[in-house]
Computed example of a mutant assay.
Amino acid sequence: MTRRTVAEYASHITRLLRPLEQLPTEDVPLRSAIGRLLAADVTSPLDLPLFRNSQMDGFAVDAASVVEVPARLTVRATIAAGDAGLGAHVPGTATRIMTGAPMPPGADCVVPVEDTAADGDTVVIRRGRVAGEFVREPGTDVGAGSLLLPAGALLAPRHIAVFAAVGIQTVTVRRRVRAAVITTGTELIPAGNTLGPGQIYDSNGIALATSLEANGVEVVSVGHSSDDPAEFRKLLDAATESADLVVTSGGVSMGDFEVVKDVLVPLGGEFGHVAMQPGGPQGSTVVDGIPVLSFPGNPVSTLVSFEVFARPILRRCAGLPPIVAEELVLSHPVTSVAKRQFLRGRRLGDKVEVVSGPGSHLIAAMAWADVLIDIPAEVLSVDAGSEVKVWAL
């Protein structure tokens, strides 16, 4: 791969991953559907409300009996929510009724309890009502067969609520992209172990896995390989069998132990540099039909590479809204290099400040950042007070 601009390489990655937008559908239980992309229209199997019911706690009456108030009516029964087998309403009487309880046949309005005064087995109606007041009629929310939500909607709790209200148990959604993560480097060990000489904890595995999950991807495995090509190839083969996408970190630069590049170049992988800082070394391969994105191993380079190249297309696959660049005012001057630079920044109202140096190892400082400050390749310095483009992290 020859040296590319960020825009050129981003377009390449988008083309590589575009087939993931056409993954098959699957039926999932309603409880698991939150955040999923609806793949088929959903219509209501029934009316909502399903039956005439009371909107208020009060007394079900016929409006003709309460034209002149106060009116004293005999209370014939009490109806709670869930009651059935109701007797017909007798004109000139009242039925005590609770919110959501079915209306007795023949009653045409409800007088709220605050407009009444109970007196033994009678009730005094102090304010009259007209037919239909405080009565919920069948289908006034949604009718049977009506569209509840069209295909392509991103399911939120409010959608899950209405599906449950009409008795829907499963929905058809687009299958999530399944990704496998492989980190590399003999020096890396899992957290919880005692560090030996020259060793560091592996942060890239969990960073990439959570970044993928935060952008609508299902992570099926997170593995780690030493710099042994045979070990990496074994993990890669397992990953391509279970995933739609493989993301690796490390082993892509110009050193002597670049295991990812050593294994993937013979398989057709393209490796080279993108004119950006951090995250210059990049690689991409298709192995057994599965795209493999290979990011550099320095922790900040890994995270920035994901944000710049993988996040946009993966969000589109998941139906998530795009991250749109904003313009903020730089709070202090900065200098840059002759390549596109992504500085870690922190919002200060309508301003932004740089929170760390450009070093790709400064992972702790990245925790303080909430945006990437995007400095174009041709810009070598930016004055305080200038507007800069930022991308939310």
Score class of each variant (00 low, 15 high):
346 R>I: 03
320 L>T: 00
305 S>C: 15
320 L>I: 01
348 L>Q: 15
321 P>K: 08
327 E>G: 01
309 F>L: 03
310 A>I: 02
326 E>N: 01
348 L>P: 00
321 P>L: 03
313 I>K: 01
326 E>Q: 14
328 L>D: 05
310 A>S: 15
305 S>H: 10
310 A>G: 14
320 L>C: 00
305 S>F: 10
334 V>P: 00
312 P>W: 03
308 V>W: 01
337 V>K: 13
332 H>S: 14
317 C>I: 03
346 R>K: 15
318 A>Q: 09
306 F>R: 07
350 D>T: 13
312 P>Q: 10
330 L>W: 11
311 R>D: 02
315 R>W: 01
326 E>C: 01
314 L>F: 04
341 Q>L: 12
348 L>N: 13
320 L>Y: 04
350 D>V: 05
342 F>T: 10
315 R>T: 01
339 K>R: 15
306 F>T: 12
319 G>D: 11
347 R>G: 00
345 G>S: 08
346 R>H: 08
335 T>A: 14
320 L>F: 04
346 R>L: 13
315 R>I: 00
343 L>A: 14
327 E>N: 08
327 E>P: 00
334 V>N: 01
306 F>N: 07
314 L>T: 06
343 L>F: 15
317 C>W: 05
314 L>P: 10
322 P>M: 07
321 P>N: 08
328 L>W: 03
341 Q>D: 10
323 I>Q: 03
310 A>E: 05
328 L>C: 04
350 D>H: 14
308 V>L: 05
337 V>H: 09
331 S>R: 12
316 R>I: 00
320 L>N: 04
336 S>P: 07
337 V>F: 13
343 L>Y: 15
350 D>E: 14
315 R>Q: 09
344 R>A: 07
312 P>G: 09
335 T>Y: 11
319 G>S: 08
343 L>E: 06
318 A>L: 11
308 V>G: 04
336 S>N: 06
339 K>V: 15
320 L>H: 04
311 R>I: 00
317 C>R: 04
339 K>L: 15
338 A>Y: 13
322 P>Q: 07
309 F>H: 15
342 F>H: 12
335 T>G: 15
327 E>L: 11
328 L>A: 05
313 I>F: 03
341 Q>T: 15
321 P>H: 04
309 F>W: 02
349 G>C: 05
318 A>G: 11
341 Q>A: 13
306 F>K: 09
350 D>S: 06
316 R>S: 12
348 L>Y: 00
321 P>Y: 07
324 V>T: 14
331 S>G: 05
314 L>C: 07
336 S>K: 02
307 E>Y: 04
333 P>T: 04
314 L>W: 07
311 R>Q: 13
